[in-house]
Simulated assay, not measured.
Amino acid sequence: MKLVMVLMLAALPLYCYAGSGCAYLEGVIKDIANPTISIEQFKNSLKEYIKDDATSNAVGEFKQCFLNQSNETLENFDAFMQVIYNSPGCVLF
């Protein structure tokens, strides 16, 4: 399952880099770090990419990892993502 999570993290920036739209990627990242969004709500936002139970379970575990974090950690994660988004040298975003 950890491998699936790593692959998901690697695939999202590639999706953006391919020209599909960074707004979608930013939305997924905001949803993953938002403690008010439940696992089911997160799965619903990605339902077009979830094709089987194994993927559904991986997405649920991925979201649960963020739900287990403190608000301070989630705020730091959001600040980190903002630095990446606004970085002039970053070609993925």
Rank of each mutant, 00 (worst) to 15 (best):
A54F: 13
C16G: 03
F80Q: 11
Q69S: 00
E40P: 06
V28K: 10
F66A: 10
M81E: 00
F42K: 03
K47M: 14
Q69F: 00
K30L: 11
Q69Y: 01
F62T: 05
C90Q: 08
S70Q: 09
K47H: 13
V4T: 10
G27P: 08
I37T: 07
Q64P: 06
A33C: 13
I37H: 04
A18M: 14
K47Q: 13
Y85M: 07
N71D: 11
A23W: 08
K63G: 01
K47G: 02
T55E: 09
E48I: 09
V4K: 07
V4C: 03
L74A: 02
D31R: 11
L67G: 05
S38V: 07
V83R: 09
F42E: 01
C22P: 03
T36Y: 13
S20G: 13
A54P: 04
N86A: 12
S38Y: 04
F93P: 01
I50D: 07
T73L: 09
D78F: 08
A33E: 05
V59M: 10
I32E: 02
I29D: 02
L67Y: 01
A23P: 01
K47F: 14
K30M: 06
M1T: 12
E48W: 12
L74W: 06
P88Q: 11
Q64S: 12
G60N: 08
Y17Q: 03
T73R: 12
P88R: 06
K47E: 14
T55M: 15
L7F: 11
L25I: 05
V4Q: 08
A18I: 08
S45F: 05
C90A: 08
L92M: 06
N34D: 15
A18V: 04
T36K: 13
Q82T: 11
L74H: 01
K43N: 09
Q41S: 13
M81F: 09
N57I: 08
E48C: 06
A79L: 14
